[in-house]
Design a protein around this nucleic acid. Sequence first.
DNA 1: TTTAATT
Length: 458
Amino acid sequence: MNGLTIGQNTIPMKDHDAIKLFIGQIPRNLEEKDLKPLFEEFGKIYELTVLKDRFTGMHKGCAFLTYCARESALKAQSALHEQKTLPGMNRPIQVKPADSEGRGEDRKLFVGMLGKQQSEDDVRRLFETFGQIEECTVLRGPDGASKGCAFVKFSSHAEAQAAINSLHGGQTMPGASSSLVVKFADTDKERTLRRMHQMAGQLGIFSPMTIQFGAYGAYSHAMMQQQAALMAATQGSYLNPMAAIAAAQMQQMAAFNVNGLVATPMTPSSGTSTPPGISATAVPSIATPIGVNGFSALPPQSNGQPTSEPIYTNGIHPYPAQSPTVTDPLQQAYAGVQHYAAAYPAAYAPISQAFPQQPTIIPQQQREGPEGCNLFIYHLPQEFGDAELMQMFLPFGNVISAKVFVDRATNQSKCFGFVSFDNPSSAQAAIQAMNGFQIGMKRLKVQLKRPKDANRPY
DNA sequence: TTTAATT
């Protein structure tokens, strides 16, 4: 049974009512072949897949397991779920139907404001009158101490709703600071968002981030996967998972920075051009795109660059060619980019590619402006993409396109690009301000783009 | 006071 034998080969078959199990708390050094013996004793395995990060290939510490027979799954679940702890893990193994098997999270409750000493059993007793409890977990720290909250999964949405109606806010547990909280648990998406906000908070980034997340929350998952991909592509594989995790977090933070950075110009500066000689006090757009959001969260600089310096203070004037002192705040800002990029090349460089659909930074097309409006820029930092290029020139007027040229084979910037404004005086202002602008060891070359046919002999 | 993880 449970196999279709053709000649020498047996093709495994599974019951039509087979259950896919989710296996959690697997040590990351165990692969399918290592796990197989553990599960085989409950029946013939139809499929066993360790979950890996799709880009980094990193073992996620969990797996999916389908037995040929439904019965085997039930046996394995009752024998193993929370029943033993695999070596190196500090929580017991999880063996339960995968999320894909049942309905989603619409029957799972978050219970907050529990007393710290309330156990799973206490929580069960509190909720059992409302229906069938499929799962009940008190959240605990690494030391095993309760975090004062729990997840309770009912067998139906209605049961969960009934529990909310009766228990939410109804009583205050001993030791809790306010009345019991009973609500549906966050969805995955909500969790991701909350984590990002937490991270943002820790980094001291607030306003534009929040806006960004509101507007582009849907991209967050894709973004993180992109980040992982970029990381893998740029840095190769990691010797240990922690390094990869740390790098992934770096990636996220970097994404936040650039995200905040590129998001801002939508607001103040669009549609205005900045006449030469005007100070940043009157033109906040000069300060904003370069300022806080991009740089307040930079990791400590190794070279003594004062990160605490208020980069975006009023009084910035973007004329380094005329006043090329190192104390120019704008220049420091770009120097900051450079240093950051040098220290975290993978984190910085490819970010602008991480938002392929980002409406605020992707010009519809490479549009060329009228004659005298198009600039050629050379000696761009390797890390600069279209978004950063646009960012750099936004203070001078309406940028209708910004294009960094990229090597087709390596996907690396060729360190030059083109920026088009919608009027010649913006272009001239940009040349005045940015030609000779020092970034790192290089100085930008900013000049009018040659007309297409200029140096063609015929 | 929102999990470690869900192809």
